[in-house]
């Protein structure tokens, strides 16, 4: 059953790692985000710490957008989207494959960006920081589960990148708002009792978005 999804995932990762330049470019780009924000808002360290969680997510989300655009541009290139519609498999399986490849690539970017973030904003590493892992996972999955299906929608237009931003940003804003709140709690070390219920809520919406997209993906492939 998962054969299709795994094949697609393997194929996507293989292609992604083959174009190492684009990974490097994306990493430099997120570096730039930190630099530019630093110059445009010349603020004290204290304020910087307050906006740091938001900044971190801006960098994450930009790298995520990049991955999403790339992912379906590859499929459109040689008519592969039509090839997917012709495959003797469930459209949901194709969605799962694409979802995992986009998510893994985004998480990889996050792993590359986070150390720089720590250095630039001189954050103290502590054991409590491990709480960031579920936060990043939940936020990223929310972003990519919606992003994957909307990217498959946007790829049918000529202005793919703009349209994906227009569709995805407003829809994913709740997830991002919550993720920023949660990240802020962990980074400031003020993990209140609201932390876990909120994290659970993000997780619940991840499940909703994923299931909905899984069910609707067949309609996107159909003409």
């Amino acid at each position: 059953m998962m054969r299709t999804a795994i094949s697609i995932l393997k194929k996507d990762l293989r292609m992604e790692f083959r174009s190492k330049e684009s990974i490097l470019a994306m990493w430099i780009f997120s570096l730039l985000i930190f630099v530019i924000f630093n110059f445009t808002f010349e603020v004290s360290r204290l304020v910087m710490l307050e906006i740091a969680p938001g900044l971190l997510w801006v960098a994450f989300v930009f790298s995520g957008m990049f991955g999403l655009n790339q992912s379906f541009a590859l499929e459109k290139e040689n008519g592969n989207l039509r090839a997917m519609a012709l495959m003797p498999v469930d459209g949901g399986q194709i969605y799962v494959g694409k979802f995992f490849s986009v998510t893994i690539i985004m998480l990889m970017f996050e792993a590359l960006i986070f150390p720089i973030f720590i250095i630039f904003y001189d954050l103290q590493l502590s054991l409590g920081m491990f709480r960031l892992i579920p936060v990043l996972l939940a936020g990223t999955i929310g972003f990519t589960s919606l992003g994957t299906i909307l990217s498959a929608v946007a790829v049918h237009t000529r202005n793919q990148q703009i349209l994906l931003s227009l569709l995805l940003w407003p829809l994913v804003s709740p997830i991002i708002i919550w993720s920023v709140t949660l990240t802020g709690m962990v980074l400031s070390g003020e993990v209140t009792e609201a932390f876990y219920p909120l994290l659970l809520r993000v997780g619940a919406f991840d499940v909703i978005f994923f299931t909905l997209s899984y069910m609707l993906f067949d309609f996107i492939l159909e003409d």
Binding site: I149, V153, L171, I208, F209, L212, I220, D223
Partner: peptide, 12 residues
């Protein structure tokens, strides 16, 4: 098809 999908996700 595409706009129906977005119409459903949007309202959710």
């Amino acid at each position: 098809n595409l706009s129906a999908v977005v119409g459903i996700i949007g309202f959710t």
